[in-house]
Design a protein around this nucleic acid. Structure first.
Length: 888
RNA sequence: GCCCGGUUGGCGGAACGGUAGACGCAGCGGACUUAAAAUCCGUUGGCCGCAAGGUCGUGUGGGUUCGAGUCCCACACCGGGCACCA
């Protein structure tokens, strides 16, 4: 039998056997519990996998393998998020077509995933670009549309005037086109949206029902951005003495509705402190007021509005930017005080949130304060800090924004605490029908349209009159045409718009029609793939409801924290819609979510030379390892940076497996750090796991002669020696710890527990050869160790399993059970402290009474030396742990 | 600015409020070897000490407790997310 770990000699053999035997085909036997373990849907990049990706896949694999051995039906699938911009851009760059390119890349991923022995059921695999898959993505669009959750409206795209193409947000860097550096403009075109805002509250509430990292939940809550406040209306009066008339083309007939502005505030308690109003440059009231304004005023305001429009979003929201704005030439009336206050147009108010207009309270809002100081507006104090009577006066250099305060200068409300005043004033507005309490969300509807080729076509067509019609479900999929050229059109339209055979179609009503030529953004495809995995090849429907009811929700969803918001929010939204439609029995798709830490590579940089300019946020120039080696030592600085092809710091699983073996790599991925922690990768660590595996092989090889496969039925029969009892204790402790550690994602301590156990076994086999009674305990030990090792190092476990005379795979063996009684220590070492400082340890029976413990502690000579001459005031006894003698 | 994480030997890390540093890497000493690699055994937080032992020690400063890496308060530094959302 093999006595050391020689991966080159047996790992590939086991992978071939697993494949030939279809060992990882999903089991769906009745009567078993189910477990759905899922990794994030990867985009297969051309660089292939790095050891960083393995940090995601190996731990999930360990958990799934253990669950299977524990008797669960396990669903552990893998597929590819193939549609989308990265694939399209890469294909353009490589002058090839995305479809075959993605097939090739996905093939590489699959080969590498198999190389590291991950137990995916490849029969369930698919790519989101498969027509059999995106057919149902289109069906999802149809469902959303039918439920009133998909709509079209004018929306701006980033437009590069040189490349004549629409750009995704990630292609705009610092307001410039990523590829050619031209300043990006805005263009409004009709685009499709999903009404995720309708689910905002439920998306918040659902977070309380799932087992996710608290930080991720908080990020989602922040993203949704719920805030409670009051929305009310203020009458608008155009500045007296302004030239009236001269408002030309608008005509007089549109002036029927009263001139007013609606504002939203979360601080209705500060309404007595309002000294001005601000409306966004895009606010409709601007045009109406200007219609009545004099020429000078009109020109000034129009110039401001035009300049605001020219600014990119990033410039407009640049940090520390001063508050600009102009007086609109009109006043609003505070409904509570009847006071007339000036209205300004300023771009620090956003049209997209709330009503696009605010009541400004410079005394108690820093932004309003900054604006008031810059434009000479009055600052009024209406909240005084609770307790400390140091009201923040107008002279202060900051607004007083805290909410633990009391109202002042607020008429009948003076003296009221903030929270109470908010309630009272909210009621006042409602009773007087001037406004109402309202909840606003920062969350915006989900823009789904992409003016790109490589995506799922939107299943809509338009009649000659422009009416939109859904393509009937039985005519799906609307297939993406196979074309030579798919680069974006130079009029901002999708490449599909230039393909007459695609565009021209017959509408469901039989008339001549025109297809929608935008495709869906990639997040659509990844928002339901976890459902398709339950029933991946169903030709008649997206899934059989029974299959989804069986497997959902995902029990463990594992991936990087970079998808904390978007993907997880969209997938939750779709699941809730499907729940409402009665198609999925769960409201939350992912019961438990885990984020693995990043793997960082050691990366060399050098200082910039004269004339070199560095990118934003960079303070050194990336160099290759070869360049770094050639440079003088002082000129190179090494940093830990996330592994990526562009940084040249990638270690691939292929290299690691070739040098150290797949099982060493797997164990090192688990052992190197806690699952959630970032790690600084070094290949050296695999020496340790490789050595460990060799030591296991040696132990099993040395002792396989004593192995009795029937140990289980015979071990209870005889009285065991002390050494045999110790052996069993070590074994049962290992099984207990490994089971618990894997369950709680503590894979690093799962591995170290095996190492400790191995050390203990080696200590226990020193001295005499095992006698007949110890043979049974050794049999249990060898078998348990191999099985516990199996999820982490499956090739080696199977090799040893075979060496012990078994047929088949450890994957199909039962996960060992542990007996808490056998695992229990017979004696324990108890710490003895004097005044909290460790002075001695004593060995006592595990079940020693408190009195016995106290007596044993006080009997210690070392302890006596510290007690000597002092009075014992108290003795604290923690059974099984310590005794603390308090003297003084 | 706000919201999350994090800070423990040369390094990665372990530790239900109860013996800080498990396990491993690297190093050092030894065995085996003609030699090296591999392997095996031992050793490895700082300071004082021949030793026994003592003493300090988990980013900083306070606090709670018989007892704090762990709980509370304040602060510093590092990483991530959000950021004019009224």
């Amino acid at each position: 039998m093999r006595d050391h770990y020689s991966p080159g000699e047996f790992e590939a053999k086991w992978r071939e056997r697993w494949e030939a035997a279809k060992a990882f085909r999903t089991r769906e036997e009745p009567g078993r519990p189910k477990f759905y373990g899922l990794d994030f849907f990867p985009y297969p990049s051309g660089a292939g996998l790095s050891v960083g990706h393995c940090r995601n896949y190996v731990p999930t694999d360990v958990l799934c393998r253990m669950k299977f051995m524990q008797g669960y039906n396990v669903l552990h699938p893998m597929g590819f998020d193939a549609f989308g911009l990265p694939a399209e851009n890469e294909a353009i760059k490589r002058k090839t077509h995305p479809a075959p390119m993605i097939d090739e890349y996905a093939g590489t991923y699959e080969r590498q995933m198999k190389l590291i022995g991950v137990s995916y059921d490849w029969e369930r695999s698919f790519k989101s670009s498969d027509p059999d898959y995106y057919r149902w993505t289109q069906w999802m669009f149809t469902l959303l549309h039918q439920r009133g959750l998909a709509y079209r409206k004018l929306a701006e795209v980033n437009w590069c005037p040189k490349d004549k193409t629409a750009l995704a947000n990630e292609e705009v860097v610092g307001g410039l086109c990523e590829r050619c550096g031209t300043p990006v403009e805005k263009r409004a075109i009709p685009q499709w949206f999903f009404r995720i805002t309708e689910y905002a509250q439920r998306l918040i509430d659902g977070l309380d029902t799932v087992d996710w990292p608290e930080g991720i939940k908080q990020m989602q809550r922040n993203w949704i951005g719920r805030s409670e406040g009051v929305e009310f209306t203020m009458a608008v009066e155009v500045e007296p003495g302004a030239e009236v008339g001269d408002d030309g083309d608008e005509g007089l007939s549109v002036r029927e509705s009263p001139l007013e502005v609606r504002v939203f505030t979360t601080r209705v308690d500060t309404v007595f402190g309002v000294t001005f109003c601000v409306v966004a440059p895009e606010h409709p009231v601007v045009k109406r007021v200007l219609g009545r304004a004099g020429q000078e005023r009109r020109e000034a305001v129009e110039a401001y509005v035009a300049s605001a429009k020219r600014l990119s979003d990033t410039d407009r929201q640049a940090e520390g930017r001063e508050k600009t704005g102009v007086f609109l030439g009109a006043h609003a009336v505070n409904p509570l005080t009847d006071e007339r206050i000036p209205i300004y147009v300023a771009d620090y108010v956003l049209m997209g949130y709330g009503t696009g207009a605010i009541m400004a309270v410079p005394g108690h809002d820093q932004r309003d304060f900054d604006f008031a100081k810059a434009h000479g507006v009055e600052v009024r104090t209406v909240i005084a800090p609770a307790g400390a009577e140091t009201p923040t006066g107008p002279d202060a250099d900051r607004a007083f924004e805290a909410k633990d305060g009391v109202l002042v200068n607020s008429g009948a409300y003076s003296g009221m605490p903030v929270a109470e005043a908010q309630r009272a004033l909210g009621e006042w507005f409602e009773q007087n029908e001037l406004g109402e309490r309202k909840v606003n969300y920062k969350l915006r509807d989900w823009l789904i349209s992409r003016q790109r080729y490589w995506g799922c076509p939107i299943p809509v067509c338009y009649s000659a009159e422009g009416d939109e019609m859904l393509i009937p479900v039985d005519q799906l999929p609307v297939e993406l045409p196979k074309v030579e050229s798919y680069e974006p059109g130079d009029d901002g339209s999708s490449p599909l718009a230039g393909i007459p055979e695609f565009v021209n179609c017959t509408t469901p009503e039989g008339t001549l029609g025109r297809r929608e030529t935008d495709t869906m953004g990639g997040f659509a495809c990844s928002s339901w793939y976890f459902l398709r995995f339950c029933d991946p090849h169903n030709p008649d429907q997206a899934w059989d409801p029974g299959r989804v009811a069986y497997w959902m929700p995902v029990d463990a969803y594992v991936g990087g924290a970079e998808h904390a918001v978007m993907h997880l929010l969209y997938a939750r939204f779709w699941t809730k819609v499907l729940y409402d439609a009665g198609l999925v029995p769960v409201e939350e798709p992912f019961q438990r979510l885990m984020n693995q830490g990043q793997v960082l590579g050691h990366t060399p940089y050098r200082q910039a030379r004269e004339g070199e300019t560095l990118g934003v946020g960079e303070d050194g120039v990336l160099v290759s390892f070869a360049e770094a080696a050639a440079l003088p030592e002082g000129e190179v600085t090494w940093r830990w940076v996330r592994m990526s092809k562009s940084k040249g710091n990638v270690v691939t699983p292929d290299e690691a497996v070739a040098q150290f073996g797949a099982d060493s790599l797997r164990l090192y991925e688990l052992f190197v750090a806690p699952f959630e922690a970032d790690v600084q990768w070094s290949n050296e660590g695999m020496n340790g796991t490789s050595r460990f595996l060799s030591r296991v092989f040696r132990l099993v090889s040395d002792l396989h002669g004593v192995y009795d496969p029937a140990w289980r039925s015979r071990i209870g029969g005889e009285e065991l020696s002390e050494r045999a009892r110790a052996l069993r204790r070590v074994t049962h402790k290992l099984v207990k710890k490994a089971t618990e550690d894997i369950e709680r994602f503590a894979f690093n301590t799962y591995v170290s527990a095996m190492m400790e156990t191995l050390n203990a076994y080696n200590d226990l086999r020193k001295g005499s050869e095992p006698d007949a009674r110890e043979r049974l305990a050794w049999s249990e030990a060898l078998e348990s160790l191999v099985l516990v090792l199996s999820p982490g190092a499956p090739h080696s476990a199977d090799e040893m399993w075979e060496g012990l005379g078994h047929e088949g795979f450890t994957y199909h063996a039962d996960w060992p059970a542990y007996d808490a009684e056998i695992a229990r220590d017979e004696t324990v070492t108890v710490a003895v402290q004097v005044n909290g400082k460790l002075r001695d340890t004593v060995e006592v029976a595990a079940d020693a009474s408190q009195a016995d413990l106290e007596a044993a502690a006080l009997a210690s000579a070392k302890v006596q030396a510290f007690i000597d001459g002092k009075q014992v005031r108290k003795v604290i006894v923690v059974p099984g742990k310590l005794v603390n003698v308090v003297v003084g």
